[in-house]
């Protein structure tokens, strides 16, 4: 059936970009956070990306909270316990075993976020303000700290705003590349640190030598200047930065028709 598809939304562009990062034989972890935009970034986009990757035949193990390989599209309507317990899956791990998966380095990639990120990919979800009582108290380190320490690579999904992309985070709750080359090794961090940062404006990576954030591509309709203006530190911009690929008609049809028909994931229509 030929359907004229509406143009891709930003969240769809982000999902498709993230889906290209999945690799076979990885163990990917998605947390089960709730709430509006934070849910879209932490759960919705990684979930749609995972299904798109699975559709392409990438064979990876997916862990949601304590669930192993649940039916991705079967995500329940609410995250209350009775609904979560109805979610069909291969295994429901004891919580300590789930965290042991992190600590033993079995989690190869995960998806995290925060209130601040800096040019080395360090994240802050604890406090705004360095000294004394915080100017804004945030939620706390949660599991993001564990992902950032132990995962072989993390993908950071955040809104691209100047107050979010800061030169130095006020508090490192989830370590990125610290202060540059060799920092993670000196700290003895087993994981590899942030690999890509996917925002509502661009896809960003980290320079192999300086470990500073670089611009990989800008989303359709977004200019390099807009990205620079929304970034509170000096971004490395290689020559000839391209555009993030637009989702194909088939990908859009899959997202809208099968993966997220009710907007649970990309519009946070979940309770």
């Amino acid at each position: 059936m030929a359907v004229a598809l509406a143009p891709a939304t930003t969240e769809e562009i982000m999902s498709v970009a993230l889906s290209r990062q999945f690799r076979a034989r990885e163990h990917a972890f998605i947390g089960l956070g709730t709430g509006d935009r934070a849910f879209i970034y932490a759960v919705g986009i990684p979930t749609v990306a995972a299904q798109l990757a699975a559709d392409r035949g990438v064979d990876f193990c997916l862990q949601y909270g304590t669930l192993l390989d649940p039916s991705i599209t079967g995500i329940p309507d609410s995250l209350g316990d009775p609904d979560l317990l109805d979610w069909e899956c291969a295994a429901r791990l004891p919580v300590e075993r789930c965290l042991d998966v992190f600590r033993r380095g079995l989690m190869t990639c995960s998806f995290i976020s925060g209130a601040q990120i800096d040019k080395f990919g360090n994240l802050n979800s604890v406090r705004i303000g360095r000294e004394g009582p915080p100017k804004v108290r945030l939620t706390g380190p949660i599991a993001q700290a564990d992902h950032a320490v132990f995962a072989q690579r993390t993908f950071v999904i955040m809104p691209h705003e100047r107050r979010v992309f800061v030169d130095r985070v006020d508090f490192i709750s989830a370590p990125g590349h610290g202060d540059g080359p060799g920092w993670r090794e000196r700290q003895g961090l087993p994981g590899g640190g942030p690999d890509k940062v996917i925002t509502d404006k661009a896809v960003l990576g980290f320079d192999a030598v300086s470990r500073r954030m670089t611009l990989d591509s800008v989303h359709p309709g977004v200019t390099v200047d807009e990205v620079v203006a929304a970034t509170g530190f000096e971004l490395l911009i290689p020559a000839g930065v391209g555009e993030t690929p637009s989702p194909s008609a088939a990908e859009l049809a899959a997202i809208r028709g099968r993966i997220d028909p009710t907007g649970k994931l990309l519009q946070a229509r979940i309770k």
Binding site: G33, T34, G35, D36, F39, L79, L99, F102, R103, V126, R127, G132, P133, P134, K135, V136, R137, L138, T139, G140, P141, I142, A143, Q144, A145, D146, V149, S173, K271
Partner: peptide, 28 residues
């Protein structure tokens, strides 16, 4: 936090007023 609703407001106020001491942890 209060899950989907946002930051825990009483906790936030007390933290910003310095009236409680917060000892952080990660999940692990």
């Amino acid at each position: 936090g209060i899950s989907g609703f946002g930051l825990a407001r009483n906790f936030r106020r007390a933290a910003e007023a310095g009236s409680i001491e917060i000892r952080e942890h990660s999940e692990i």
